[in-house]
């Protein structure tokens, strides 16, 4: 965690059902304007962006709450039904949750020159906007895996897992889709993208791959050598860690790479939508985008050697942005989730 001058950090008991993991306040206490942001993004990554936003706005105070994606969804949906919320802006990486919230009419509309710059796929109804650009990547341990052993695509991963004495057996980790909304979304998107996913589930199940929680833990374990490869890790976390740790390599799968844009929504009942709109526009305009890029929340895949994310193949051909559109509602369907989770559990028995 970086040290931030105006940052107050509070750690709450994880037991509380609807509670933020972390909260922080930016800006002077006697500010005339206040806004509350609820987000799944790590405070350490998002804090500097907020600070940059506030440098030219000395009269503004922003309260930041960091949430788990499932909790954030449940709380926002409940407050939407009640028509009362303290949040002015909700940002989540579990974009299917956000599509569902907007579909329920929980979002306030906003249209500006900044929102016009977004690709059609990256916004919906002028109520939901994709603010980041993060590839779902594989992270590996450079010390243990030689360059020729590194899986460059899902096919490589399948091939590496095929031998009965595979080194990777039991040492591949990925998000547990029941614990992590983002994990579910990425797995679900994989299942829609290619049949490789079925083979991967089978191979993961056969070799005893690990499904666990939380980017930080997974990447730590890869760095320590406990796991050799982490599959479907969000590029922002992976890059952030890899920059400070030579042991970590980051690969964008060459068959296809899911690109996730964290979705931002202004709740219809938000107390100060004006501030939320201003901050949203900031995030979408060049100045804010530069800050997001500095925090690895916007990642541009490059084919050149020495790029932070290793890419094999052409970038245009492999990028698969996850559109912020109603088909994501399928990921929220009760039966679908049950079927999907059942399939997942077959591979990752508890």
């Amino acid at each position: 965690m970086r040290c931030l001058p105006a940052l107050i950090v509070a750690v709450f008991a994880a037991a509380a059902a609807h509670a933020a993991e972390l909260t922080a306040a930016f800006g002077p206490e006697n500010a005339t304007r206040t806004a509350t942001i609820r987000s799944t993004t790590d405070l350490s990554a998002f804090g500097p962006v907020i600070e940059a936003f506030l440098t030219t706005r000395p009269d503004t105070r922003i309260l930041y709450e960091q949430w788990g994606s499932n909790d954030l969804y449940r709380m926002t949906a409940q407050q939407c039904a009640e028509g009362d919320t303290a949040a002015d802006l909700v940002i989540s990486s579990a974009v299917h949750h956000m599509v569902a919230l907007v579909n329920e009419g929980c979002g306030a509309s906003h249209s500006s020159a900044a929102t016009e710059t977004l690709a059609e796929q990256m916004k919906w109804r002028d109520q939901l906007w994709g603010i980041t650009r993060e590839p779902a990547v594989m992270v590996y341990n450079r010390d243990i895996l030689a360059p020729h052993e590194v899986p460059r695509s899902r096919f490589d991963l399948l091939d590496l897992l095929r031998p009965s004495d595979s080194r990777l057996a039991g040492r591949i980790a990925t998000y547990d889709i029941e614990d992590s909304g983002l994990g579910f979304l990425l797995a679900f998107s994989d299942s829609l993208e290619a049949t490789t996913f079925g083979g991967l589930m089978e191979a993961f199940g056969r070799t005893g791959a690990v499904a666990t929680c939380c980017s930080a833990e997974i990447i730590d374990a890869v760095a320590s050598g406990e796991y050799l490869v982490a599959y479907n890790v969000l590029g922002s976390y992976a890059l952030h860690r890899a920059r400070g740790d030579d042991r970590l390599g980051v690969v964008a799968p060459g068959d296809y790479t899911l690109i996730l844009a964290r979705a931002a929504m202004i709740p219809a009942a938000a107390p100060s939508t004006g501030m939320a709109r201003e901050f949203l526009d900031y995030l979408l305009l060049p100045e804010g985008r530069a800050e997001l890029e500095a925090q690895d929340l916007i990642v541009r895949l490059g084919e050149e050697a020495g790029a932070p994310v290793e890419v094999s193949g052409t970038v245009e051909a492999l990028e698969r942005p996850i559109g912020l559109h109603p088909p994501l509602l399928v990921a929220m369907d009760a039966d679908k989730r049950e079927i999907f989770t059942q399939r997942w559990r077959d591979a990752f028995p508890q």
Binding site: V102, E104, G105, D126, P326, V330, D333, E338, I339
Partner: peptide
């Protein structure tokens, strides 16, 4: 009865670009 909700149905409904969707079985 179990519904394996098809994505194609929602892609179809997405042709009405900005409309909110509701379903129930």
């Amino acid at each position: 009865a179990l519904v394996d909700m098809p994505v194609s149905a929602f892609e179809l409904l997405s042709l009405a670009q900005n409309d909110r969707i509701r379903y129930r079985v």
